[in-house]
Simulated assay, not measured.
Amino acid sequence: MAATIQELLDILALEPLEHNLFRGRSPQVGWQRVFGGLVIAQALVAAYRTVDGRPPHSLHAYFLLPGDPSVPIIYNVDRIRDGRSFTTRRVIAIQHGRAIFSLSASFQTVEGGLEHQIAMPDVPSPEEVPPLDALTTRLPEAAEGLAAHFSSKRPIEIRPIDIERYFSREQRPPLFNVWLRAREALPDDPMIHQCALAYASDMTLLDASLLPHGRSLIESSIAGASLDHALWFHRPFRADEWLLYSQDSPFSGGGRGFARGSLFTRDGTLVASVAQEGLIRIRVDRSR
């Protein structure tokens, strides 16, 4: 198993400390703050550990403070409700005695019902999209953070369909599509795949709100951070198979960007939906 995937599985293997209390860690890769998708995924694991036999159908989260990657994160689960069809959990992530993140998750007994879905966009297949490793020689100085941002050291492989947006300041419509998957095969446990998707869902989404402005989060002059995050699971899927993450941004303003995402399997099945608001500020050079 590749080291990056083992790292992801280690991240999701929370240590139980006490009833409703778990401890998670961050990979020591030199990040200045904890990756938001990591906290979402670990909080979902903590909630999952207190629920029997029901998969999650939605989660809603707020990022309260930047996470410190040098120390563990404590997850405190509040068992809000155990109903006949639905189970509700609230999770607080704590570091240095303060809440850095909160999540509410709802789990539901599997049942049938009326069904419909939107169509998947018509885009090139992942095999037709070059891997980011093949593009590093094209990186100008302005995009030097691209290789690090989508580093092969990450457990999720990402193939942006419109890679040219990273090489241009051209203003584009707020639409962005990427293929993503875990870099290696994952265990069959559906919890692992849902939590891996929760991890990946925080990657690239906020960047869609910068397309109309010809900017990107990989620029050192842009300060970006997730503020909140919502994720809905619709159908079963595997996170180690290609998923199309189709993103759009209806609005940005007030120093915030709002983006939405739909995740499809290769055959066009909609398996999850995402919404996020994040901070987007232009850094001011005060040395001048």
Rank of each mutant, 00 (worst) to 15 (best):
W179R: 00
P126C: 08
L132N: 07
S152M: 05
P160T: 03
A200K: 00
G97V: 07
R172E: 08
H96I: 02
I100K: 01
E111L: 01
E127R: 10
F150E: 00
V123Q: 10
A185K: 13
E127H: 04
P140G: 06
G112M: 07
F101V: 00
R98F: 06
E219C: 02
S104A: 14
R183T: 12
V123W: 00
E141M: 13
F101W: 04
G145E: 12
M191T: 05
P187M: 03
I161T: 13
A198H: 07
P155C: 04
I192L: 09
A148T: 12
H149G: 03
L103F: 09
E157I: 00
A148N: 12
F107W: 10
V123Y: 01
N177F: 11
A99T: 02
E219A: 03
E141D: 13
R154T: 09
E184Q: 13
Y166T: 00
W179L: 04
A225R: 05
P160Y: 10
L210T: 05
L139I: 13
L186A: 14
D189Y: 04
L206H: 03
S106K: 01
A143L: 03
A208P: 04
S104W: 05
P131G: 10
S151Y: 08
N177A: 11
G112A: 08
L175E: 11
G113K: 00
A119K: 09
T204N: 02
S226Y: 08
G113D: 09
L211W: 01
L146C: 00
Q171H: 04
I92D: 15
L114F: 15
R165Q: 09
D189W: 07
G224I: 11
D162G: 09
S168W: 07
R215D: 03
A198T: 06
V129H: 09
T204C: 01
P212T: 12
L135K: 08
P130M: 14
M191R: 12
A134M: 03
L186R: 00
T204L: 12
D162E: 12
